[in-house]
Design a protein around this nucleic acid. Sequence first.
DNA 1: TTGTTCAGATGACGTTGTCACCTGAACAAC
DNA 2: GTTGTTCAGGTGACAACGTCATCTGAACAA
Lengths: 197, 197
Amino acid sequence: MISRAESAAATRRALLDAAAGLLDSGGPDAVTLREVGARAGVTRGAPYRHFPDKDSLLTVVAAEALDRLADQVQAVCAEPQASPADKLHRALSALMTVGRRQPHLYRLMFASPAGDPAAVHAAIQAADRAMDAFLAVVGDLVGAQHTRQFAALLLTSAHGITDMEVSGHLSADKWHITAEELVSTLVSMIDRQARSG
Amino acid sequence: MISRAESAAATRRALLDAAAGLLDSGGPDAVTLREVGARAGVTRGAPYRHFPDKDSLLTVVAAEALDRLADQVQAVCAEPQASPADKLHRALSALMTVGRRQPHLYRLMFASPAGDPAAVHAAIQAADRAMDAFLAVVGDLVGAQHTRQFAALLLTSAHGITDMEVSGHLSADKWHITAEELVSTLVSMIDRQARSG
DNA sequence: TTGTTCAGATGACGTTGTCACCTGAACAAC
DNA sequence: GTTGTTCAGGTGACAACGTCATCTGAACAA
C-alpha cells in the first residue's frame, strides 16, 4: 500500500465506510464531511478529491448497499435445495432486515438518488441489479406471463411494509399485526392468484 | 386582526404556509428558517416564538397534511352513492395524489416525526385519524373479521407503490406496469380473497 | 396610568458545505 | 539520476445555516 493509487483507493474506501457508519449511528444529520474525513484519517477538504459533493458521497453509499442487497438476493436465488416460495420469503426477508438493522441506510437506498450524475447512475444501476435478481426469484414461483406484475406488487408492497414499520407508522397496538404476517398474507395471496389464474 | 393573539396566530399560519411552500418547490434543503421567516414577513428569530426548532415546524407541517388526508378519506367514506370498492379506490387515489403532487411533503408525512414532543404527538394523532378513516373504508368492503389485516396490507402496499413511484424506482421501462395497475391488482386480489375466505 | 407580558428585531456564536490556494510526494520522460 | 508534472491532501476563508441572549415596543391587565 505505497503507490499513490492504492493510497487514494484506501482513503476513498475509508470515507465511504465512515459515512455509512455515521449514517447508521446518527442518521443523515450526523453525516458531516468534517467528521467523515476525521474518521477516515484525513481533513475536511480531502473528501472533495474523491466525491464532488456530499450528496454524491451519500448516493455512492446507497449504491453500495443496493449492490450488497442484489448480491444477497442473487445468492438466495442460486440456492439449490430451497423451494421457490422459500426463496421468495428469504429475498423479502433480506430487504426487511436492512430496514430493521440500518433504518437510515434503508431510507437512503429508496430515496431519489442525488448529486453527481456518475453517482446517480451507479445507484440506479445497482437498484436495477437488485430488482433483476428479485425478478428472477419471483419468476421461479409464478408463470412467466405475470412475473413482472407480481414481482412489482411484491417488491413495492414489501417496501411499503418495511418503510412504515421503520418509521413507526405500523404500530402493533393499532394494527394488531406484524410486518412478517403482512408479507406472509401477501405472498400466499399472490401464490393462490398465480395458481388459479 | 388587531389583537396580539390574532396577529400571532396569523404569523404562525404564515410560517407554516411558507414552510410548506418551500418544501414543495425545493425539497427539505430549501426549507430554511430564515427564508420561512422572510416569506412570512418576519425575521430569522421570529419563528422561535412559535416553534421550538426547525424539526418541530416541519413535523407540524406534516401533521396538517395528514389531517387534510384524513378529512379527504372521511369525505370519501361518507359519500352515499359510491360503492365500497369505489370508496376504497378513491381513498387510495387520495394518498397517491399527495405523493405525485407534493412528493417532498409526502415523504415528510411518512417519515418518523421529529422535534418537540407536542409536535410529534400532533403528527401521530393526525396519522391515527387518517388510518382510522381508512379502516372505516376497508371495513365497508370486507368482513369485520379481517378488516385490520386487509386494511394494513392495502395501506402499506399503496404507500410502497406511491413511494417507489415518487422516488423513481418504479420506472415504467423496467416494470411495464403503472402504479394504478398495481393498486387495481392488489384491490381485486383482496376483494377475491375477502369473498372466498 | 402603570406595570407586565410577549411577538418580533437584532447581534452574535458555532457548525456546516464548499472553494481557492498551497505543499509535498509519487510518477513519467529524458 | 535529474527534472518537470500530476495529484492527494492540508489550510485559510467564505457564506449560509440553526440557535440563543438580549433588546424593544406595543398590547394587555391592574
